[in-house]
Amino acid sequence: MATETMATGNEGGAGDNERLEAANGSGFFTLLRTELLLALRSRADIVNPLLFFVTVLAMMPLGIGPDPDMLARMAPGLIWVMALLATLLSQEALFRGDFEDGSLEQLSLQPQPLYFAVLAKVAVHWLVTGLPLAVLSPMLGMMLNLPSAGYLPLVISLLLGTASLSLIGAVGAALTVALRRPGLLLALIIMPLYVPVLIFGTGTVQAALDGYSYSAQLAVLAAILAAASALAPLAAAGAIRISLDH
C-alpha cells in the first residue's frame, strides 16, 4: 500500500529526469511524503509523546491537590508546560535516524537546499506531535477543570505555538544529533528559547479566562511562527552541516 503511493509519485517523469526533478520544487513534496510515511510506520514515536502529555498531566492533581478552583487557575500553564516538554522530548529523534543511517549526509549533498528538507521534517513532526496535542488538549482542560471560555484559545494557541516549538527545537536537535546522549543537553539549550512561545501561549488562554480579547496574543504567536519558519530551518541546516563534519 505504502509502496504504491511512493511508486506512483515517481512514475510521472522519465528515468533520466528524475534526479533533476527531485532537485526542483517538487522535491519538497517527495520529502514530505517520505517523512510522513516514515513517521506513520513508527507509531510508538507518535503515541509516546501524547501518552507522556496525558500521564504527566494526570500526575498534577495528585501532586497539588484536587481543589477544582486551584486546578482551573493552573490549567493553562500546566497544559502549556507539558506540551512544551512533550514536544521537546520527541524532538531528540528528529534527525537521529537519518544521521545514523547516512541519509542526512545524502540530503546535505542534494543540490536542493537543506532548508526544505528541514522544513519537511519539522512539518511532519508537528503533524504527528503538535497537532494531536492540540486536539487532545480540551480533554485535559476538562480534567483540570478549565473554564469553558478557555477551550478555543487553548486549542488555537497550541496549534500555532507547537509549530513554533517544533521549528525552534529542530535547531537544538540538529546541533546535538552527533552527540551520543543529547537528551538533557537538548532541553538545556532549547528551553530558554521556548520562553516567548510559552508566555504568549498561556497568555492567550489567560486573557480569554479573564474575559478579554486574545487576538493580540494570537497575532504575536503567529508572528513568532512566521519568524521561526523563516529562520529556524536555516539555523538547523547550518547545524546539520556542523554535526555532519563531527
Partner: peptide, 24 residues
C-alpha cells in the same frame, strides 16, 4: 565542532534575546 556548534547556538540566542526580553 564545539566551536561551530556553540557559535551557532549563541547566534540563535542573540536573535532570541530581544524577543525573550520583550515577552518577559
Amino acid at each position: 565542532s564545539a566551536d561551530k556548534a556553540s557559535a551557532l547556538l549563541a547566534l540563535v540566542g542573540t536573535v532570541n534575546i530581544p524577543i525573550i526580553y520583550k515577552s518577559v
